[in-house]
């Protein structure tokens, strides 16, 4: 019933939230299933971007339909996340490289030294 209403409604916040959720879940699944470290990293990027879509959607006055507000909080947050993601990707790739140098593979299952 909710899905049906989504199809008939004009595009609004809810649609964007659905897209964000799909991205988020795709990212989580990717992180949980990929054994390749780079694949896991991509999953992380998907999760972050899913969150970004949510930020922008909720922060957008046009999508919310009340044009009075010109707050840029959501967009700023998204930009912030993008910058963070870039930094994180750099660090993660460095880790990956070091990891490869250590164990000669980028299979994350090989990294279980922290097992309790």
């Amino acid at each position: 019933m909710i899905l049906a209403s989504l199809v008939t409604e004009p595009v609004g916040v809810a649609h964007y939230l659905i897209v964000g959720a799909v991205l988020f879940i795709a990212g989580i699944v990717c992180m949980a299933t990929k054994r390749n470290l780079l694949g896991v990293l991509m999953g992380v990027e998907l999760v972050l971007n899913g969150a970004n879509v949510n930020f922008i959607a909720i922060g957008s006055p046009y999508l919310r339909g009340d044009a009075a507000s010109v707050g840029l909080d959501g967009q700023l947050m998204a930009l912030f996340v993008i910058v963070l993601a870039a930094a994180e990707a750099a660090v993660a790739l460095a880790i990956a490289l070091n990891f490869y140098n250590t164990v000669h593979t980028i299979d994350v299952d090989a990294a279980d030294q922290l097992r309790g």
């Binding site: 989580i28 992180m31 949980a32 896991v40 994350v108 299952d109 279980d112 922290l114 097992r115 309790g116």
Partner: peptide, 15 residues
């Protein structure tokens, strides 16, 4: 015991 060290398992727990 639940600290397996496997990254993918941790992500699963996270989810």
């Amino acid at each position: 015991r639940i600290q397996t060290g496997s990254l993918r398992q941790y992500v699963f727990f996270l989810a």
